[in-house]
Nucleic acid binder design. Structure first.
Length: 771
DNA sequence: GCCTGGAGCGC
DNA sequence: AGGCGCTCCAGGC
């Protein structure tokens, strides 16, 4: 924009934006921005913030968002469409101008906060590439230069640089809208080799310490430990038909290769820098510099592995990458084996880490346990080191790569706690803020350490409130906004109709708002009352928040969709391991139609029980249920009711089983007693007593329930489970059903007189259902 | 119910 | 213009 304004106003020396003196306007319009800046290093804080995603945890990388999260400075968002309006008066134009000036201030502050210049300078100095290229985030190129320098010093001839050709056939000339079915979309290709090992988690809620250990820089360490290098590993010639076998570890007698030497140097320098940081005389400025340096060293060492597996890298070496990950898997597996052989309970692990359930509340005990294991593991390796990484006071482990925990740290002898959340819907930007805040509440409750019933009561109550407030229109629009990133440009998506963000992006582009690959698109889901025709897909109901806010748009947020699709699923997933609630219950709290969930879960239960136990007879299945005792009004004796198939059944109903009585049991009386029995069992289930499953132990507790946990009794090796579980309750209720199930009895009995009776009773029942 | 893309995480 | 592993959601069949 600047350049074109300069040209329009015939500004001299317009080429001074860059350092090349240009006298002629020869640049192609598309490439102006790059070429015109030649000779200058451009720092794009948008790219820089994305590159430092490790520090910047932001839903989107807009200046407004970054100013808020990084600089704690509010910034007014001025929508693209409203800008022309600011030109209508001097005062509003001045306001807009000031806003722009403030933006430049924010950008500078952001650059300073993220330490973009010091860090990129260090990275560049290490790799020996061009600073300007580091700014644009060319990680592979940095790695290439690092290796080029290294191999040149060692007097090797390096591989030729392959000319970059896109492997995909999407030509830039294909502008016609014709959808070519056979064309592959750009994006992530399928994996070429195996990566890290992820252990199957032992899911559940843990309310005693979990110890987390991990290997320091696993892959760089493996390269050194096993002397993995282009110069040492015997690898097959690169061709299309070579076998994908992983190569052997080089002979231990071989001289240290270039790659391990390089990594050793990086690690050693980092150690030195960290040593300098311990100097009490170091000034804050020096400390900051040291910290940047050690970060750069670490980043450089850690990015080596990734570039070995990068197809378009000059130093692409799939066999080396394969060997590294393979050793990683082997190391993790061995570590798990060692821990388990010491009687430790490994509940999870991912690539370079393991988590151990310690079954103790004493942090000192945990430390002893950890040190002990650490010592044994580290004995096995020359360089490789495992380290205690964290102590989790409580932990909710839901799935692979999805968990939350209360982390305990010692600060000046004081124990501090903090919540850490990994992979949950809660940390993903494709869920709206409403969804996040509800999940956060539920998670805080679950991890609070309070009793189960209390926790569930509070969650249920909160959900009811959320349902009411949402439907009442009390929740601000912002809380409904969902953000999704564009991996491609809008027109490159093949499947547009199922992707809400693409639909919205296309409309934004039509309005002249720039949306490119890598940008984040915000949208809300609205109801469509105007359309009576075929129901619209979800994506077609997506609108940009500005479209919703537009006066007279007639759009309304689809509250029911949000409660059912954004709030309910994540909360249900969080509560899944907690006994005493389920998807149906949570849905009904939110005011949603719970029957769907009840039916679904009942069907699932039914299948689980009947499919698995298909061969089991009723006698076997109901061996442990409480019989339904019914008191006869005439003889006043209680007798177990065995069921319509076996009880004395008369034309007037069930009869008292007492030998000398046989009076008809009135239906209302049976109904009352049955209801009481059902209520009693449901209460028993809700009380949630936990019982050790070792019959000799018999320890009973009533805590926030877990699906899987060791018995409270320290000496006992048993596990804890509900004394009266959901399965037992189900079985109990199934028994009650069976007792009065005429249809089933009719199907199963061979007694002709009973058959007649039952079929008659069945007909009567359909005539007078209230009986 | 099974399969396939895409997103977006974790490491 | 580093890698793979793992949920989830939608949609098509």
């Amino acid at each position: 924009v600047l350049l074109h304004r300069m040209k329009a106003h015939k500004v001299d020396y317009w080429s001074r934006l860059g350092r090349l003196r240009r006298s002629q306007w020869v640049l192609a319009w598309e490439k102006v921005d790059r070429a015109v800046m030649s000779g200058r290093i451009v720092c794009d804080t948008y790219l820089a913030a994305k590159a430092r995603a490790d520090l910047v945890k932001s839903k989107s990388y807009s200046l407004t968002q970054l100013a808020r999260s990084q600089l704690e400075t509010p910034r007014e968002d001025i929508s693209f469409e409203s800008i022309p309006g600011y030109f209508k008066s001097a005062s509003s134009l001045a306001y807009l101008t000031e806003h722009c000036c403030f933006d430049t201030f924010l950008v500078i502050k952001l650059m300073s906060k993220l330490q973009v210049l010091p860090l990129t300078k260090q990275l560049t100095a290490l790799a020996g590439n061009l600073w300007g290229r580091t700014m644009t985030g060319a990680r592979a190129e940095r790695n290439e230069y690092l290796l080029l320098h290294e191999f040149h010093k060692a007097k090797f001839i390096v591989p030729d640089k392959a000319i970059y050709t896109s492997q995909r056939g999407a030509g830039a000339t294909q502008q016609d809208g014709d959808e070519d079915g056979g064309r592959k979309t750009e994006g992530r290709r399928k994996p070429a080799y195996a990566g890290g090992l992820v252990l199957e988690p032992k899911k559940g809620f843990y309310d005693k310490f979990v110890l987390m250990l991990d290997f320091n820089s696993l892959y760089p360490s493996i390269i050194q430990e096993y002397n993995i290098c282009f110069t040492t590993v015997n690898r097959p010639v690169r061709s299309d038909d070579n076998p994908d076998d992983e190569p052997d570890v080089p002979d231990s007698a071989l001289e240290t290769g270039t790659l391990p030497k390089l990594l050793a140097r990086l690690v050693d320098r980092r150690r030195q820098v960290k040593q300098l940081m311990k100097d009490p005389k170091a000034t804050p400025t020096e400390l900051a510099q040291y910290n940047i340096r050690q970060t750069a060293l670490k980043l450089t060492a850690n990015s080596m592995y990734g570039c070995l597996g990068f197809t378009n890298s000059r130093f692409y070496a799939k066999p080396l990458a394969m060997l590294i990950t393979s050793k990683g898997r082997e190391i993790l597996q061995n570590t798990v084996g060692l821990a388990e052989s010491k009687g430790l309970d490994v509940i999870y692990g991912d690539t370079d880490s393991i988590m151990i359930y310690t079954n103790t509340d004493s942090i000192d005990e945990v430390k002893t346990m950890g040190l002990d294991l650490k010592r044994e593991v580290n004995k096995r390796y020359r360089l490789l080191e495992i380290e205690m990484d964290a102590f989790y006071q409580r932990m909710l482990l839901l799935k692979k790569k999805k968990y939350a925990a209360i982390v305990v740290t010692e600060v000046n002898g004081q124990l501090k706690t903090k919540m850490e959340t990994k992979g949950l819907d809660l940390v993903r930007r494709d869920w709206c803020e409403l969804s996040h805040s509800v999940s956060e509440f539920a998670l805080n409750q679950i991890l609070s350490g309070d009793g189960r019933e209390e926790v569930l009561d509070r969650i249920h109550e909160y959900l009811a409130k959320v349902g009411r407030e949402t439907r009442g229109g009390l929740v601000p629009i912002e809380k409904f906004i969902i953000n999704k990133g564009m991996t491609k440009n809008a027109h490159e998506y093949a499947d547009v109709k199922s992707q809400p963000h693409v639909q919205v992006a296309k409309r934004m582009i039509a309005k002249g708002i720039s949306v490119r690959a890598g940008d984040t698109v915000p949208y809300v889901i609205c109801t469509d009352h105007t359309a009576q025709g075929p129901s619209k897909t979800m994506a077609e109901c997506a609108y940009h928040p500005d479209e919703l806010r537009q006066p007279g748009s007639g759009l309304k947020i689809d509250f029911e969709w949000y409660l059912a699709q954004q709030v309910h699923p994540p909360v249900a997933r969080l509560c899944a391991p907690i006994e005493g609630t389920d998807a149906g219950r949570l849905a009904s709290c939110l005011g949603l139609d719970a029957s769907r969930y009840h039916v679904a879960s009942a069907v699932a239960d039914m299948q689980q029980h009947t499919m698995l136990d298909a061969q089991i007879s009723d006698e076997e299945r109901f061996r442990n249920v409480d019989r339904l005792f019914v008191r006869c009004l005439r003889c006043n004796r209680s007798n177990p009711l065995i069921g319509v198939a076996l009880s004395k059944v008369g034309y007037r109903g069930l009869r008292c089983p007492e030998e000398n009585c046989g009076a008809v049991l009135p239906a209302p009386s049976i109904g009352f007693q049955l209801t009481a029995a059902i209520q009693q069992h449901i209460r028993r289930y809700q009380e949630g007593w936990l019982l050790c499953d070792d019959p000799a132990c018999q320890t009973r507790t009533r805590m926030l329930s877990v699906r899987r946990e060791k018995c409270m009794n320290a000496e006992c090796l048993g596990g804890k489970s509900l004394a009266f579980s959901d399965k037992m309750l189900y079985n109990q209720l199934l028994y009650f059903d069976r007792v009065f199930n005429y249809d089933r009895a009719l199907k199963h009995t061979t007694d002709e007189s009973l058959r007649g009776m039952l079929s008659w009773a069945t007909r009567c029942r359909s005539a007078a259902p209230c009986d």
